[in-house]
Amino acid sequence: MTRKQAKFFFLAPAIIWVFVFTIFPLGYSAVLSVFSLENSVDVTRTKVPLLDDAGEPVLTRSGKPRTRTVIERTVNSDWTFVGGKNFVRITKDMQAAEAAKVTVIFAVVAVTIQIVLGMALALLFNRKLPARGVMRSVMIMPIFATPIAVGYLFFTIFFENGGPLSFTGIPWLSNPSWALFSVILVDVWQWTPFAFLVFLAALQGIDSEQIEAARLDTESSWKIFTNIVLPALQPVIVIVLLLRFAEAIKVFDIPFALTGGGPGVATQSYTFLAFRTGLRFFDVGYASAMSYTLLIAAMIIVTVFFSRIRKSYS
């Protein structure tokens, strides 16, 4: 095998795979998004003679054969080309607007808390600690805990009649604003450790001599943080911010399990709504248009993200 052949055969399977299982579905989805699927039901009534056990027609008193009516329903799925109508519909759809609002609030608040809290914890723990390994292990657990199970687990924790947090009297899941906050809290529980671990790893890479020198110059801790630590950590903060944000706008599992999108639609995320529209109500064209809107939002984030970190992959 020449180098040229090796170059081709090593890389080709993965590229073909992505084309078959990612690019093709995305193209399919793009096509679906400009169609509308109308399900119409045709009902046909036909009268058939009623037969007795022996197969003979049953007669009425007047001697005519008795009949029974057979009702047949056939579902016709008609794909109609609607052009950009699905996308126009999104802009007028109150539910989509609400879901978008919920998703943005969720993503902004959750990611902000994760970054601030993760940073605070990383600074706090960036020192010699007797049980550092234990702390690290405890922080790794939430990240890998099955999200759907985490959602149900927190359902038992936020349970208002006898759950461990019921002593607060807070309507964790029954009040719309609190319910959204509860979903945010679960995400904070799950992903603050991620910010923490990444920041801690980055903190340990900072030259400690520089900080010692600044400390000897009697600079305040806050000044050391803003002048030395924060600039050194800036690229890592950007990475965590964008990775988390790109994940957060896709949130689905936690609201699905914790609140079922409720109360009302208070915690119905955009992915949740698209999932319901497409796979529960089979409004496939419209749901595809909705997912494409999310895709475009994600792509904008990705573009910003990769323009920043592209150099680390060179």
Partner: peptide
């Protein structure tokens, strides 16, 4: 390759289901 990770899965779930 990296950018696949960030795509919203809901965009491929319906075509995948239909296929």
């Amino acid at each position: 390759f990296l950018s696949q990770r960030v795509l919203p899965p809901v965009a491929t779930v319906m075509p995948f289901f239909l296929v």
